[in-house]
Write a protein that binds this DNA or RNA. Structure first.
Lengths: 218, 218
DNA sequence: CCTACCGATCGGTAGG
DNA sequence: CCTACCGATCGGTAGG
């Protein structure tokens, strides 16, 4: 039943282009700051054109979250997977890529999910639920990577995988916030240094930490 | 030239009451989500009444930020100062009070400044500047407390005070986010455990960590 | 995808 | 502090 014609193809391309602009806009102005009119102006499509593609504003927000997750996976998860086999090195690569994703401003306003999380943490509804689900997928992936490294003896057997993931993610997200507010790359060095120390304390070998990124001076 | 009459007094009480509601609303709906009309409804004061008290929306936002900082200092800094003299114990008390301030939902939507920081990190202007300034005052206070502990030999001489403050604050803020999104108090236990380990690694004595709060199980 | 339009709400002001 | 009002923008729909 697949319809393959010009209209359908054009429609999907338009939708993808609008979503790309929308996720960038949302990372700066917030997901609730998105407006059909504002997005129309940013894409040179009429406001009702936007509405006809996505339906309601909430459906637009949900589409933007799904699109942002695709962008995140492409920028962080896939490169880390491609760069190194599972183990302590994969954990380091995931965090290293996360820091680069934030530092490179893949989203103009910094990590999309950090912003969206704080924006919707107290506003119940489908938007909050979608943000939570995306966060959990990322956290679970990091936890699973840590667990695998423990099983293979690349991290100490007594390591609490969820605790370690919590601490590593805390450092990354705080680097994101501090960098944006202080307009500085120094927080990424701080985060890298702390993550390195934490993984070494958890029994990782120094050679496994290469993909975390450059060691800060001192 | 101080005018002390009924009008002035009533005006200040009204202003204080409106700000209290406004900072609560802003912690949930965001600082940009504040509206003169919405705040009017929440306070049973007319919209133009709100406008006459604060002038513009931006001036309202700046007043809310200043009020939120007063609330923060009252909830976190003053109790920590009152509870323990300067030193490693003060550092532990500051972080312990910060976690309690977040966990107790002093602001309905969790830490006001965590939310406001991510909301305005990419939107230049006076609001962003005010948030940055408030954050810096807090960070500088924590850094100064750490430095004092180092000078008095309560933390290791080689401790990097700014690095340590960065790591401790990262853990607190991540606990705030995780708790709000997962609707759980468990992240505060994780943060406390990590902060305790980090301060011990920096040379703090276990007895100085009492005011950090209860040790998590295990 | 468009034009044209809806009622509601936005920030803000006049005038008291 | 109020009522009354302004133009602009909001999300959304009718009809094509």
């Amino acid at each position: 039943m697949t319809i393959v014609d010009g209209r359908r193809l054009r429609g999907e391309r338009t939708r993808a282009a609008v979503l790309r602009r929308a996720s960038q806009l949302a990372s700066v102005e917030g997901l609730s700051g998105l407006s059909l009119g504002g997005l129309a102006e940013a894409t040179a499509i009429s406001k009702s054109g936007i509405a006809s593609i996505f339906g309601t504003k909430e459906q637009l927000q949900l589409a933007v979250i799904a699109d942002a997750e695709r962008t995140f996976i492409e920028a962080v998860v896939e490169p880390a997977r491609a760069a190194t086999p599972r183990g302590a090195g994969r954990v380091a690569a995931l965090l290293g890529r996360w820091l680069d994703y934030s530092a490179e401003r893949v989203f103009e306003g910094g990590c999309f999910f950090a912003a969206a999380s704080l924006e919707y943490d107290s506003r119940p509804g489908p938007v909050r639920d979608a943000i939570i689900a995306a966060r959990r997928r990322w956290t679970e992936y990091v936890v699973a990577s840590i667990r695998f490294a423990i099983e293979r003896g690349r991290l100490a057997a007594e390591t609490d995988a969820e605790q370690l993931a919590f601490e590593l993610q805390a450092l990354g997200e705080h680097a994101n916030t501090s960098s944006l507010l202080e307009d500085s790359a120094a927080p990424y060095d701080r985060a890298r240094r702390a993550i390195r120390a934490r993984l070494l304390a958890a029994g990782a070998e120094a050679s496994a930490l290469e993909l975390l990124g450059p060691r800060a001076g001192v």
